[in-house]
Design a protein around this nucleic acid. Structure first.
Lengths: 148, 148
DNA sequence: TAAAATTAAATTGTATAAAATTTAATTACA
DNA sequence: TGTAATTAAATTTTATACAATTTAATTTTA
């Protein structure tokens, strides 16, 4: 088999599919004024408010270089606040404002709308979700092992 | 089920996994002086040389806003040439140079090295590849239908 | 056939990503 | 206890993504 063929790569369909699905989110997220990574930040904060930048970064697998400017923009839009922790001034705690909390209501229909927009079966979506989650966990595990 | 939980999203593991796997390519691609999207461009051109920017964009699902500057950088590195087609001056044809062709040799071990680096089973990789490819095809099909 | 519509790239503007460096704060330990 | 090491964010730099606009070339069609 020709290993350097695009169609034989794992990386490419994953990369293209991820961008494609993000594309399906855009018109929906536009309505509530969020970008896709900003939406992911909100998902995390709606679940658990008051996380540090580091904790957010761990959950989303993004570093401060990505999160810092993004969170600043979201602060400007009054979705959240950034406050340094008194006990350790290095730590910045991100908390939702009322506006940010309230946005959850407006976002509540997005998961169903996406499922509809994608026109993929529940089986297919669930199979992909569990496969991707499993692979992600394994790769994160490898990183842990290699860094020790 | 709480639909707005990060762990219940399809989008997130896919997005994170895609970035994670790209991350595994970086040290390998660094050795041959390519970025990840540049590697994808080379994969396409190694298979079929002399494509237009549009054709490259269709295969990689990237638009000219992404490809134009990227291709210019690759031209500067003498990996490829950009020439306007005589019959239709709007079309720019991308052709590998000898340097670009020769780079294929240096890239030949990357697929195996990646497989090794990922430490995932062949079954898992193949299942993901075929699932992702299938979903991608369906989504592209939807786009075609919706645009007509 | 000349103006209108279409097409292909390039450009512009905004928003990520991520490596590397810097800054400030905290902790460890000789 | 004071310096070294570590840690958390922010900043800087480079490189995508992609929507929207512009430019130039080609086709369509009234």
């Amino acid at each position: 088999m020709e290993l350097l063929k695009l169609s034989n790569q794992l990386c490419f369909p994953l990369y293209a599919l991820s961008r494609k699905i993000t594309g399906h989110y855009l018109p929906l997220l536009d309505k509530i004024g969020l970008t896709y990574p900003q939406y992911l930040v909100m998902l995390v904060l709606w679940e658990e408010n008051g996380l540090s930048v580091k904790e957010l970064g761990q959950k989303l697998m993004l570093d401060s270089g990505t999160l810092s400017p993004l969170l600043k923009k979201m602060e400007d839009r009054l979705l959240l606040t950034r406050k340094r922790l008194k006990e350790d001034e290095r730590v910045v705690i991100i908390s939702l404002t009322e506006t940010g909390e309230a946005l959850k209501e407006n976002a509540s229909r997005i998961p169903e709308e996406i499922k509809c927009s994608l026109e993929l079966s529940y089986q297919e979506l669930e199979q992909m979700r569990s496969l991707a989650t499993g692979m992600l966990d394994k790769l994160n595990q490898i990183e842990l092992v290699r860094s020790n």
